[in-house]
Simulated assay, not measured.
Amino acid sequence: MDIDAFVTAHRPAWDRLEALIRRRRSLNGAEVDELVDLYQRVATHLSQVRSVSADPILVGRLSALVARARSAVTGAHTPAWREFVRFFTVSFPVVAYRARHWWVATTVAFLLVSTVVAAWVAGDPAVQASIATPEQITQLVEHDFADYYSENPAVSFAGQVWVNNAWVSMQVIMMSLLLGLPIPYVLWENALNVAFSAGLMASRDKLDIFFGLITPHGLLELTAVFLAAAVGMRLGWTAVDPGPRGRLEALAEQGRAVMSVALGLVVVLLVSGLIEGLVTPSGLPTWARIGIGVVAEVLFLAYVIFFGRRALADRETGDMERAPDLAPSAG
């Protein structure tokens, strides 16, 4: 079979079916009959293409078209609760898992910069003096850093933290619209903020207080920010290297995957905010507070690895407009 000739001959039917699907709620009787007829014909086309061609783009397009037509013809729909379960067991974790290399690289770079700068600040009085006066450093170390976590009612504080962290992550994700180019700068600024606080606390031998307060919620919170940054930068790289697909198609798929992460991180950051508002300022011993943060972090990573790896093995992409690998075909 000459695939180019096949496409040229049948493209009008595919385009017509696409148009009918978009108008399915306002079709008259004749158009409904035409929709059913075209659905059967395009299903046959898909079967023919699968048998003679390995063109993944053409097969993918026809699979998606046939699946949408089947839904329009049968009126089938997925219950909302199943979509909810699918999102948290497939869509979100598989996108996070597929971005694992970017995620790990982002984490390592952030921690490396933070550690080096914090050591520099802690060991150089001139650098400390350029950041704040001795009185301001004393106020930060002795009062402000710890008071931040207890100056507001716990529930109110948890809500404020959640909204703020979600907004920060959404900003990072929205920067993916600029192909992720501003994201390294945002991470750099945040790494410096963490490093300056750690360095100043270390300069007054208060590093134990720093980690005792920052670790319970910071593990999960920073992990979420790193994930948001990773998928945003991965979207930018998709524009450079789209793989075997067309550049626009690859960008559209990765862009929808980024939105899956944005929605999933709302829940992750809610948990982080609750820990920061309720656990960090609590009277629990330091080891217990840190232990809660470590458990939350381990559970989240285990969740992503377990469900993400399983979904990836099933060839899922996390695309919100996914097309099934198998579509019905006429005999």
Rank of each mutant, 00 (worst) to 15 (best):
Q136Y: 03
A54K: 04
D144Y: 00
V161R: 11
V7I: 15
R245I: 12
G180I: 00
T215S: 08
F88D: 07
A224Y: 02
W81K: 10
A327S: 12
L111G: 11
R86N: 12
S156G: 05
G291L: 03
G246Y: 05
L187F: 08
A146W: 00
P328I: 06
G218P: 09
S272C: 04
A158N: 09
T107Y: 00
G293K: 06
A30W: 15
G318L: 06
V240Q: 07
S197A: 12
P285V: 14
R234S: 12
H10I: 14
A43K: 05
L213Q: 11
L62F: 09
P281D: 05
T44K: 08
F6E: 00
H217V: 02
V116G: 13
V168P: 05
A330F: 01
F92W: 09
S156R: 02
R98D: 08
H143L: 04
A191V: 10
A195R: 03
V186Y: 11
L177T: 13
W81G: 00
S71D: 12
A257D: 10
D319P: 09
R234D: 14
M170I: 09
L112M: 06
M174N: 09
V279G: 08
A67N: 12
I292P: 01
R50W: 05
V90F: 06
S329G: 11
